[in-house]
Amino acid sequence: MRQNKAASLLTAGILTVLAAVSFFPIYLALINSFKSQGDMFRSFVSLPTSISFGNYAEAFDKINLLGSTVNSVIISALGIGGIVLSASLAGYKLSRTTGKLSQVIFFLFIASMLVPFHSIMIPLTRMAKSLSVQGSTYGLAIIYIGLGVNMAIFLYHGFVKSIPRELEEAAYMDGCNEYQTFFRIIFPLLVPITVTIAILDFLWIWNDFLLPLLMLTDSESFTLILSTNTLFGEYNKDWSLILAALVLTAIPVILIYSFFQRFIMHGIAEGAVKG
């Protein structure tokens, strides 16, 4: 019994130390973002002597916070919406249809999940340029749909198998056509897996860096991550300004995390197990 108590204390101790180490960079970014340059170089680890929001006001302006956030929101919302809609239609139908064609199409989607983004970024950039979707937030959202449907179809395909066919048959009897059956009967039943897909895709699109870097050229259409990257390149000695920008960039995801933590963790576990 005493041994158990000691072991329990030990794990608590180890976890606490690791948690402190893990939180340390966030703590540093947070406290130093409120300091003046001089205050900061006296000591990075101590709390600020006076709290100033000057860094934030400047960063707010420099990364065009409102505009960039709106861009990120548009890209994520359109991307996720498009993925959910088109992939649920396709995943449902592929799961319900037997035959060679359906199998081949499904295989093409699944096989492409192994293709690393870096292997397609050159032809993709050319393709985007020739279709003139390069440089626009809407164009970027469409590309995200094209890149994201494979995993979503895979997850929908598996989930649909657990829905009894009798439901659709009953709907047909009642005179629904295929689309009505899908949107009224099937789609509402797909909500659990849709939440998982939406979360995984949100984390991917919102935090993505390389694709927006390749696609967006005009700073007016930059995402939040991209604006912060530009600021980092331009003011790389002005740490109090950069830290304020980093905190501003991290706030939306931390907020979403605190509200949807349960869903996010469930979504990750679910998405991984099904994969």
Binding site: A87, K93, L108, L131, L147, N150, E178
Partner: peptide
């Protein structure tokens, strides 16, 4: 049912 997803997939992933 499959076309919307497949067209975007083909243009931005398969063909590249």
């Amino acid at each position: 049912f499959v076309a919307p997803a497949f067209i975007l997939y083909a243009v931005f992933l398969l063909i590249p």
